[in-house]
Design a protein around this nucleic acid. Sequence first.
DNA 1: GAATTGACGTTCT
DNA 2: AAGAACGCCAATT
Length: 108
Amino acid sequence: MEETNFFEKVYEVARLIPYGRVTSYGAIAKYLGAARSARMVGWAMNNSGAKDVPAHRVVNRVGMLTGKQHFDGTNLMQQLLENEGIKVKDNQIQDFQKYFWDPAKELL
DNA sequence: GAATTGACGTTCT
DNA sequence: AAGAACGCCAATT
């Protein structure tokens, strides 16, 4: 059976995010054809704990680590991003547009 | 079973 | 232009 659920698609795309790159919930949702379902992407990430999905590479459109609150530690998400060479300041990614990875364009 | 919330983003006013 | 409301699907209460 093809579990072509929204969540499965989100996990698949999120797993394809290259090292040192980040994307936004809306970008993934838009790639799935549901730009307005960005919230669902966040929900999917909530279950990402049970999946091998690098949720730390997914942030909101502003590049803010809105979901860092859901990680184990307080700065775990920021630490992971900095570990990949991404600069994070005040829970916000610096040069977000520079590290931005759009599945609808680059993954094409 | 129904109502509300939820890691957001778009659209209308 | 800025602010407020809505929309999407699923899970939780």
